[in-house]
Structure formats: structure tokens, C-alpha cells
Amino acid sequence: MVEIRNLKKRYGERTVLDLPQLTIAQGETVALAGANGSGKTTLLRILAGLIKATAGTVETPEQKLYMPQQAYAFRGDLRRNIQLTRADRAEADRLLQQLGLDHLSEKKATSLSGGELQRLSLCRVLSQDCALLLLDEPTSACDAAGAALVVKAIEAYRAACGCTVVMSTHSPALALHAADRLIVLNGGNVEADGAPEAILANPETQWAKSFTAGWKL
């Protein structure tokens, strides 16, 4: 379970996040949407413990994993990249197959395309158990087929370990197909919070309406 109270994050005079209260239940999958600079990545990084909030309290499970938006390729082949997490070879191969990268397992990770690298980054994260999985735009570089594999892998992982998943996205498909709940952020505030289908059908605010209108296109 994730519990946020009176959370504020400021950079100088600029407030980038202002969340009076937010609770995410154990096992829930939440999609964070919003325009660039709305606070999605900042919220994820605070939840991951990578940056500190200016004020407020954040309670998260001890075991958490975070996949940054910019996927990084470590030296070595794909299998070795996954085994950095101390996953065994069989687990690495299973994940590579699940994310459609098994034919590239012995290629250098630095030679991958953006979408492939993003899927490799997800493999690395999913090779470990956690109670809270934080994903920053996990399908932003993927094509439709790659994104479908990502959604399937996240669902399978959540079903296996019962963890909470929070992911930021600009993809309506990801929000609709993988999330139980959609939170739309605007200027660091929650503009809409509810079931993805409901928000898309009837956005609560004008801003959320204009944002989701883009999705409907």
C-alpha cells in the first residue's frame, strides 16, 4: 500500500507536486497521466526514494523497483544485463522470451533499438520480486507489438507477486488495458482520479477533458 499525505515538491519557487492525500491499495495498478511537466516522473521518483519531498509524508513498501524513462544498456549482452540483478540464466531467458527478445540474447545491449532497450530494461526490473513496481513511461519507445508484450509482462508479474504497480504513461492503450485506476495530473495536482474507462468517457475537469480528448483521437 502507498500512502501520501500533504506531499509537496518544490524546485526553488516552483511547486511541481502538491498532493494533499493519495492512497494506492496493495495490488492495485495505477496509471499516471498528464502533460509534460505535470509531475508524473517526480511522483514516481519520490515513491522510489530517489529524490526527497520538500514536505509531507510518503509511506511505501520496503521492497520496490523503479524503471526510469531513459532505458540504459549496461556493457555486455542482453542476458548479462538481466543477470546483473543476480537472476539465474533460466530466469533471464524466460524474461527475454516473454518480452520478445530471446533471439537477441547474445547481442550487445548497446546495439539495441530504443524499443528493444526499453523492453530489456523491463526484463531487468521484472527479474526481481517487489511489493511496489514503479514504471516511468514503460512503452514510450515501443511499437504496438512491443507495447502489447510489455502490458502482458506487467500483468503476469503482478498476478505472480501481487505487487502494486504505478506507471506513468501517455498511452491510452496502456492505461485502459493494464490499469485499474487512472490518475490525471496537472501542474502537480490531481485533476482526475478513477477508473480509466470512466475518465475517458466523462473527464472530471476541463483540462482532463482536453487531455483525454487527445487520447480519443
Binding site: Q63, L65, Y66, F74, T85
Partner: peptide
């Protein structure tokens, strides 16, 4: 920076992250 962000996201310790930075 990307190495550190990725390593910390994976829950690696400070020492392991530093070792990875040196290796990379």
C-alpha cells in the same frame, strides 16, 4: 547519471552502484 538511476531503481546498494559506475 543514467547508470546510477538504473542501478538505484533496481535496488542496488551504494557500493554496488559505485562498482557498476566504475565498470561502465
Amino acid at each position: 547519471k543514467p547508470v546510477i538511476e538504473t542501478a538505484r531503481g533496481l535496488g542496488f546498494s551504494g557500493v554496488r552502484t559505485a562498482a557498476l559506475c566504475i565498470r561502465e
